[in-house]
Simulated scan of single mutants.
Amino acid sequence: MNENEILAMYEDAGALLNGHFILSSGRHSARYLQSALVLMNIDNATALAAELITKVDADQVDMVVSPAIGGLVIGQEVARQLHKPFIFTERKEGEMQMRRGFSIPEGARLLVVEDVITTGGSVRECMAVVREHGGEPVKVLAVVDRAPDVDGRFDVPFATAISLSVETYAADACPMCSEGLLPAIKPGSRGSA
């Protein structure tokens, strides 16, 4: 599957949005990728996970983990295709945590899977929780990297199905805000940072 086919999936699902958006990092952008609309189609989820697992050695992974909520569907499907257990981290009162009775065996190697990454904040928080519980994050996979020009977001290898360079702005430096063109909306799964 090539990048054009993946982008077509987003476009066909009405998931590549143009406007004035507030990302979960608090940054602003004129484009937004709503992966939930793509992943609601099980054929899309299956195909995207199949693409992602080509970028990992299954023998080097014991479990798959995703930060909730964006990474849940793709993380579960990657785990299913790799025949590995799947867990997730989630925020409670603003703090990323492992809940629901999940546990990580000491020294377990975890693959971290996310739908879309820009700053990588949720993934770093998820990795910190994994480490606190005795696990070792070994690689990060994401369907889309929105900031391919940003290096050093993670201290483990990182791979994506598609890189899509989308400019983002600090809220106080957003040209759309200063021009008053469109009101900023927050379409994602959580409030701004």
Results as ranks from 00 to 15, higher is better:
Ser192Met: 05
Ala184Leu: 10
Ala161Tyr: 09
Thr118Gln: 12
Glu114Asn: 06
Ser66Gly: 13
Glu51Lys: 13
Ile117Trp: 06
Arg80Val: 04
Ile42Trp: 13
Asp12Glu: 15
Ala47Trp: 00
Leu23Ala: 11
Asp145Val: 07
Leu181Glu: 11
Met1Gly: 14
Ala30Arg: 15
Phe102Met: 05
Ser163Leu: 01
Ala79Gly: 11
Gly26Asp: 08
Ala147Glu: 11
Val143Cys: 03
Glu95Asp: 12
Asp62Cys: 12
Gly26Trp: 11
Gly188Pro: 03
Gly180Asn: 09
Val73His: 00
Cys174Ile: 07
Arg31Trp: 10
Glu11Asn: 03
Ile53Tyr: 05
Thr118Ala: 15
Lys92Phe: 10
Asn18Ala: 11
Ala15Leu: 00
Met9Ile: 05
Ala15Asp: 00
Arg100Trp: 06
Asp151Pro: 05
Pro148Ala: 08
Cys174Thr: 05
Leu111Ala: 10
Lys55Ile: 01
Gly26Lys: 11
Ile117Gly: 02
Pro183Lys: 10
Val166Phe: 06
Ala161Leu: 08
Pro137Ile: 04
Ala49Glu: 01
Glu77Thr: 11
Glu125Phe: 07
Ser165Tyr: 11
Gly121Pro: 05
His133Ala: 13
Lys84Asn: 10
Val130Leu: 01
Ser163Ile: 01
Lys186Asp: 08
Gly19Lys: 07
Gly101Asn: 06
Ala173Leu: 09
Phe86His: 12
Val78Ser: 05
Arg27Phe: 15
Ile69Asp: 05
Asn44Gly: 04
Gln34Thr: 02
Leu72Thr: 04
Glu132Met: 10
Cys177Leu: 11
Ala108Ile: 09
Arg146Leu: 02
Leu33Ser: 06
Asp59Pro: 00
Thr46Asn: 14
His28Asp: 08
Ser29Cys: 07
Gly71Phe: 04
Gly191Thr: 05
Arg153Trp: 05
Val123Pro: 03
Ala108His: 12
Gly19Asn: 08
Gly19Tyr: 12
Gly70Phe: 03
Ile117Tyr: 07
Glu106Cys: 05
Asn18Glu: 14
Gln34Ile: 00
Ile162Met: 15
Leu164Lys: 07
Gln97Glu: 13
Gly71Ser: 05
Thr89Ser: 12
Gln97Arg: 15
Glu90Trp: 07
Leu111Lys: 13
Lys186Gln: 14
Ile22Phe: 02
Leu141Tyr: 13
Lys186Ile: 01
Gly120Met: 10
Glu77Ile: 00
Met1Val: 13
Val78Gly: 04
